[in-house]
Design a protein around this nucleic acid. Structure first.
Lengths: 215, 215
DNA sequence: GCTTGCATGGTACAGATGTACTATTTGTTT
DNA sequence: AAACAAATAGTACATCTGTACCATGCAAGC
């Protein structure tokens, strides 16, 4: 019954972003928008979950990159609620892998922070109406995901080590496997990422968000 | 004479950021702040320079990462004006090299976008008063920059190529130098960055913002 | 004039990497 | 049961990379 009402009343929106500047920006852009009712602006995933527990929310605008709990995990937690709101991802950068994972975890749309107010509103309305919303450039790449990396867990671990400058022998020692196996994995990684050596693999992986950039 | 007046009247502020969300956020956070007068909010360096040409501005809040003209170049252009305003950098991430270059180019402070309103205001006031403003973590690292990379132009070019998966031989061909020279440069790069091979060099360089992450 | 940093090119050699295969085991999926 | 993907380990061989040196030319700075 709730679902039907939302079509006729205001869309209840929750903003989740750790940047005060972004919270203020979204609040001032969307707070006075007719048809949208801003329920709150949380600075963390924890805060968001508490708020969702108390208030009914239709759409969550979620930042993907936050300290402590990252956006993907936050998304997972939100989707486990009894009446989960729809989630629209808001991110600063375009990392393919990240977007893909967010979609897998149940995100219904993806916005870059350089998006205009009108487009943000359009995305909110689209998602609330049960549609998805992805910018054209992203949508096309999500479509032809034959090109997807699809690295196995082992390959991911090895990619991580490799980018830190470890040799095959060292990686083998770290994981208790032979250096020949490590080399086979790396050859597979290079093929999957369509690069020609380990160095390019590391750099492509970082650019696509396959391996993290901070530590 | 202008300088003296600014101490007693409002601080005239210009925001430069390509993200509509961030512009709205900063405007709503700072627009009503007593003591600060928001002169404008530009979406690009070009727009900012036009605005600076027409209006008197004390402080520019400048995003470092923008399409077309990047923040460092924009900063250079601003500092070439007849009566250059003070510049406070606003950035999403903490890339040491980037911060260092911004300081070299004349920035008087550096803010992360996760900064609170009060701290942003404090930074504006500090810079307007002729002081510098850097978050503690950044200030300390700027201080002990014995650790700085200090790569030569040639080394930077080669680092860029290397991270794209080119072999020494290919890099040599691209620059018209011998592969032995390339290898010597790379050994120097590895020493300066304190890493043990080219792969780690590429990944460290990306993490520190020494080489770009977008293309 | 001397030193220092940068760019250049080289030799010799050990070890790392990548390619092309083969092959076994294990756990899923069909 | 058969097919498949993932992880494992190996051999053989060519090439690339990194280290340790040496050496030259040039420009900037003291």
């Amino acid at each position: 019954m709730d679902k039907k009402l939302t079509k006729t009343t205001q869309i209840r929106l929750l903003i989740v972003d750790d940047h005060p500047v972004v919270r203020a920006g979204l609040s001032s852009m969307l707070g006075k928008q007719p048809g949208i009712k801003l329920v709150g602006a949380a600075a963390s995933a924890q805060e968001a979950l508490e708020l969702l527990d108390r208030s009914a929310v239709d759409i969550v605008l979620l930042d993907l990159r936050m300290p402590k709990m990252n956006g993907i995990d936050a998304l997972g937690a939100i989707k486990k609620l009894k009446t989960p709101p729809q989630v629209l991802i808001l991110s600063s950068f375009e990392f393919e892998e990240e977007i893909y994972r967010a979609v897998q975890a149940g995100a219904r749309g993806y916005l870059l922070k350089e998006t205009s107010r009108d487009e943000i509103v359009a995305a909110i309305v689209a998602v609330h109406g049960g549609r998805q919303y992805f910018p054209p450039a992203i949508a096309s790449r999500l479509a032809d995901r034959t090109h997807r990396s699809n690295l196995s867990p082992r390959e991911l671990e090895i990619l991580e080590m490799l980018s830190r400058g470890f040799t095959n022998k060292e990686i083998g020692r770290a994981f208790g496997i032979s250096r020949y196996t490590v080399r086979n994995h790396i050859n597979n990684i290079n093929q999957k990422l369509e690069v020609c050596d380990r160095t390019e693999a590391a750099s492509v992986a970082m650019k696509q968000g396959i391996i993290s950039i901070s530590p």
